[in-house]
Design a protein around this nucleic acid. Structure first.
Lengths: 239, 239
DNA sequence: ACAAAAGTGTTCAAGTTACACCCATGC
DNA sequence: GCATGGGTGTAACTTGAACACTTTTGT
């Protein structure tokens, strides 16, 4: 079988999946929400001992996205709220032996983030302060963060960081953490309220020493974002 | 070598590249610029006789983008002005035998388009009126066109359709063909002129029976668009 | 002179930003 | 009461769409 009139041979190549996992947790110094990602330590050559993105090999009976989700569960025990293909890397010299890597990026919320078993092999790092990584993973992480920050402004993915119920201040905190700047609470409120991205509940917060805030939930009829050519069901919408 | 702590085996998979090639040519009925794409006829099972995207197998010593460019030259004899990775498709059931396809999309300009040898195996089709394609290529084409239309509004890729020198009316024609609606000439002029995306030359058109138009050229310091995590040299800019 | 496309000027509506101000709660 | 964040109102500014108008060529 050929895909075209090309007369070349049909060589096989090892195909891997890796995932840039991002979650929101408090910054150790400031206490404000910040981006974190779990990395795994390499236990074999090449780059033995260095930190790298979690991943593994694509099995013959697995689709790419299913494979990414499976390797993710096996290595870091998270089930992502949002999963999107980032890019396929396949330069000949990116590894000593030729590998094609299909890289995904995933968002998980805070509860999920704590299910990652922190041990010698897996550890969470501040996204902006991670150690030098194996292979070309530094560049991959940089690209994933660029895509995340970009997609924040025209999608609802911020909600994938949060739990079932959240206040507008919490949602705003996500935007501020990812975009790296403060947003006007008044204008932010109006912008998200005029869309149907989130729905108000009749619940409010309490216990803080100020006025209670209304709790909202994600509109279940809308996808967090357009995550590729598949999944034609839900249509994305701004914030 | 493993990319993670996964203990699975390291199976190999056949990896293909395909490319959605798009060029601008006159519509046979209206005469206005329209989107065309070359397709190749399959000469073997499966889907023998159906039209499909040009492509071929990734060789062990080829990077992915290099492979796409090479298969493109071999099958359709075009050298693209713009080449960007679209998506990696790898569902188990998208072909009778398991294949991972790295799909690219390319823009070529009109002169280049005419270098494609039109014969029984290769033919140009209007992008919106192509015949049913082999494999999942219908969906891939649809996604590529969506990405093209989307990227028109925040990048300069329209210029990749044009030659060395062009008028603002020609550039506007590209936008109108891709977006499918007329644009105000006055507002269009101001929007592109306030960026440094194009540079005026001191040449003008002549011979038409109306006022001559200034000729412009692409700013060579700017990339047409951000085409992925690689190529960090040129920075993209609006229009 | 006339037609047609190039190119300029102006107005109006919509959206964004900045910021003043009131509200509801815990202490 | 007072501090604090929740929530509302509004004026200034920016952006973009719509469209009237002038300019320059070929016939």
């Amino acid at each position: 079988m050929t895909l075209s009139s090309s007369s070349r041979s049909e060589p096989s190549i090892r195909v891997a999946v890796s995932t840039v996992i991002v979650a929101l947790r408090r910054h150790p110094d400031t206490g404000a929400p910040a981006l974190w990602m779990p990395l795994v330590r390499r236990v074999a050559e090449p780059f033995e001992g260095l930190w790298a993105l979690p991943g593994g090999w694509v099995q013959p009976d697995e689709g790419l996205e299913a494979s990414a989700a499976a390797r993710l569960r096996e290595t870091t025990n998270v089930q992502p709220r949002y999963l999107e293909q980032l890019y396929a890397f396949g330069d000949v010299d990116r590894s000593p032996n030729r590998v094609v890597s299909i890289v995904y990026w995933a968002l998980v919320h805070q509860d999920e983030a704590s299910s990652v078993p922190e041990d010698w092999n897996v550890r969470w790092f501040l996204a902006d302060e991670h150690p030098p990584l194996a292979f070309d993973h530094d560049r991959i992480v940089e690209y994933a963060l660029w895509r995340l920050r970009n997609k924040m402004s025209y999608s609802r993915i911020a909600q994938a960081f949060l739990g079932d119920r959240f206040t507008l201040a919490e949602l705003r905190g996500v935007y501020e953490a990812v975009l790296g700047r403060a947003l006007d609470p008044a204008n932010f409120r109006r912008q998200v309220e005029k869309t149907d991205a989130i729905l108000p509940t009749d619940e409010t917060t309490s216990g803080d020493r100020h006025r209670p805030a209304r709790l909202y939930r994600s509109n279940p009829d809308l996808a967090y974002a357009d995550n590729g050519p598949l999944q034609q069901g839900k249509k994305p919408k701004n914030r």
